[in-house]
Nucleic acid binder design. Sequence first.
DNA 1: ACGCTTACATACGGTATGTATGCCTGTTTA
DNA 2: TAAACAGGCATACATACCGTATGTAAGCGT
Lengths: 205, 205
Amino acid sequence: MVGRTRAEKMEETRAKLIGAGRKAFAEKGFAAASMDELTAEVGLTRGALYHNFGDKRGLMAAVVDQIDTTMALKAQAAGKKAGGGWEGLMAEGAAYIEMALQPEVQRIVLLDGPAILGDPAQWPSQNRCLQSTIKTLRRLASNGQIKPVDIEALARLLNGIALNAALWVAASDDARTTLPKAIAAFECLASGALNTVRNSEGNVS
Amino acid sequence: MVGRTRAEKMEETRAKLIGAGRKAFAEKGFAAASMDELTAEVGLTRGALYHNFGDKRGLMAAVVDQIDTTMALKAQAAGKKAGGGWEGLMAEGAAYIEMALQPEVQRIVLLDGPAILGDPAQWPSQNRCLQSTIKTLRRLASNGQIKPVDIEALARLLNGIALNAALWVAASDDARTTLPKAIAAFECLASGALNTVRNSEGNVS
DNA sequence: ACGCTTACATACGGTATGTATGCCTGTTTA
DNA sequence: TAAACAGGCATACATACCGTATGTAAGCGT
């Protein structure tokens, strides 16, 4: 513990502050979270905060990025485990929805995040997730498995459905019951993007 | 002007405050909007505000309700005009998406509203819209036009897709180009809820 | 016409954020 | 190794805003 360099200590305080931010923002919401209390809880003051993150929003951005990055990683892992094609996308969406059961995710990422930091699709972490979705969709499209619509629009709305289903599950008072309904409806709507079998006249009904 | 009763004057001040709220919340966002400035702009003070709306959130709720109610009415009108069945639902969604071009709608209803007032599905105005959607879906379901999934889930996610498409259009820097893509993708995904023509083996592909 | 309710203004307290300044520790250099 | 340096962080302060408590004047009922 003696030979800790300055950069190491700074990393540690950043981690402490982000951790305290996760707790405070999740429990009280962004507006009601006091930076004085938050910093004091990890043995620091606001001086450390403003030095490391600039302002309150800066801390929020760091917190959101941390949570959202791990969410994206987990979701993509679930997708790969399920095969990587359309099944993978569905698994990814379902995993995303399930994570909304965590209050931390609900409040910080789904509710306050967009209001404080703006459109989630612009966040660095979300862009990574979106790009991954787009890539998968392009592959499916080139195989003819997907209807001819704008890929980016499809990717964004697919993510949006998952996010909205997550919000619904989060807001419901009996999450364990609504979760399967939400996932089923998600997959039902998502299937609209799949090419269907054509009947004898060549129409898709 | 002499014979104005008290209730009439109060209605007028409420209207003034809501109007000022729409402007301030849209231009500066909820957090940055100062109630002192806001009330002064219509020749009042915070006294009037706290008497009529209780607190800052109360004014926000009134503003959101006003905007969202007119949105729901417009969307439902578009739906009826298009026939009322599935086509009506699609038209409703498209109308909803188009309204997101207004900055007032973006900031107040789509961004700050959920963060300040909670789940949009719980708002009085949104509940009316949701109930209307559910009613239409039930009728379609009893006709066998819709896949057997939870109707409430479907309605919420359909509204959610429209809302998310609206957000995307709102955030894009070239809304007029993005809008048609968003509407097309919306209708594509929504069609996933429709029953498809069955092939000779009785499978839906 | 009189008293009382009520709509609104004014004044104040508490608390939050952001900034400017200073200290102290770890690093660098001669 | 010692001294100068720099950067991370604490402290003190300025500013702003919300919510409330109190005051006042105008209208409504009786």
